Simulated scan of single mutants.
Amino acid sequence: MHPRLYVNGVLAGAALHEASWGAAGAFAIGRGMLNGGRTGWWKGGVDEAEVLDHPASAEEIERISGSPASPPSPTPSPPVSSSPTPTSPAPSPRPACQYPEWRQAGYSTGARVSYKNKHWEAKQQIYPDNRNPPDSFPGWKSLGDCPMS
C-alpha cells in the first residue's frame, strides 16, 4: 500500500506501508492511538479532508481539489545582469534533521526522532506519559548529529 497525501491537488507526501493491521474503532484524523490511548495530537487545523478506499487517479484528485493534479510550475530564473552584483556571505549551514521533532508522545521500539539537532532511536516502547526527552532517558539511543545543509 502506498498512502499519499495531496494538499490543494499537489502531492505533498507518500509512504510505503506493507504491514497490515486490524483497525478497530472509529477512523480519526489528527491523532494517533497507542495502547488504547489517544496520542500524537496534530498541532494545527484540518479542513476539507477526504479519505478514499482506493488509489485516486489524477482526474479524481483534480475533481476533489478543484486544482490540476500536477507539480507546481518552476520558478522563473532572474534576468542576467551585465554589471557585477555585490556578494553577501554565504548563509551558515543549518542542521537538516530528517526525522520528526520529538514531542511528549508514545513511540514504538525503533521509532526515530530529532531532538536538539541530533537523531534518536527508541530502544524500547516509550509510553505517552514519559515526559523525559531523549537526551535524559535511557530508552533512547543517539544516532548522532543531524547532517548540516
Rank of each mutant, 00 (worst) to 15 (best):
His2Arg: 14
Pro3Asn: 09
Arg4Gln: 15
Arg4Cys: 11
Val7Pro: 06
Val10Trp: 00
Ala12Pro: 03
Gly13Phe: 02
Ala14Tyr: 07
Ala15Gln: 13
Ala15Leu: 14
Leu16Arg: 13
Leu16Glu: 14
His17Asp: 14
His17Leu: 15
Glu18Cys: 05
Gly22Cys: 04
Gly22Leu: 13
Ala23Tyr: 12
Gly25Pro: 12
Gly25Glu: 05
Gly25Ser: 08
Ala26Glu: 15
Ala28Tyr: 10
Gly30Leu: 04
Gly32Asn: 14
Met33Gln: 15
Asn35Arg: 13
Gly37Asp: 06
Gly37Val: 12
Trp41Val: 09
Trp41Asp: 10
Gly44Asp: 09
Glu48Cys: 05
His54Met: 04
Pro55Trp: 02
Ala58Lys: 15
Ala58Thr: 12
Glu60Leu: 08
Ile61Gln: 01
Ile61Leu: 02
Ile61Phe: 00
Arg63Lys: 13
Ile64Phe: 13
Ser65Arg: 01
Ser67Val: 07
Ala69Arg: 03
Pro71Cys: 03
Pro71Lys: 11
Pro72Cys: 03
Pro74Thr: 10
Pro79Val: 04
Val80Phe: 04
Ser83Tyr: 10
Thr87Ala: 13
Ser88Asp: 07
Pro89Cys: 02
Pro91Cys: 10
Pro93Asn: 02
Arg94Trp: 02
Pro95Met: 02
Pro95Thr: 06
Cys97Gly: 09
Cys97Glu: 06
Tyr99Arg: 11
Glu101Gln: 15
Trp102Glu: 07
Trp102Ala: 09
Arg103Thr: 14
Ala105Leu: 06
Gly106Cys: 05
Ser108Tyr: 11
Ala111Thr: 13
Ala111Met: 03
Asn117Asp: 15
Lys118Ala: 09
Lys118Ile: 00
His119Ala: 06
His119Trp: 02
Trp120Met: 04
Trp120Ile: 07
Trp120Ser: 08
Glu121Gly: 01
Ala122Phe: 03
Gln124Phe: 05
Ile126Asn: 01
Asp129Lys: 03
Arg131Trp: 06
Arg131Leu: 08
Asn132Trp: 02
Asn132Ser: 13
Asn132Gly: 04
Pro133Gly: 08
Asp135Ala: 11
Ser136Met: 12
Phe137Cys: 12
Pro138Gly: 12
Gly139Phe: 06
Gly139Ser: 11
Trp140Gly: 10
Ser142Val: 02
Ser142Ile: 02
Leu143Met: 12
Gly144Asn: 07
Cys146Pro: 05
Pro147Ser: 11
Met148Leu: 15
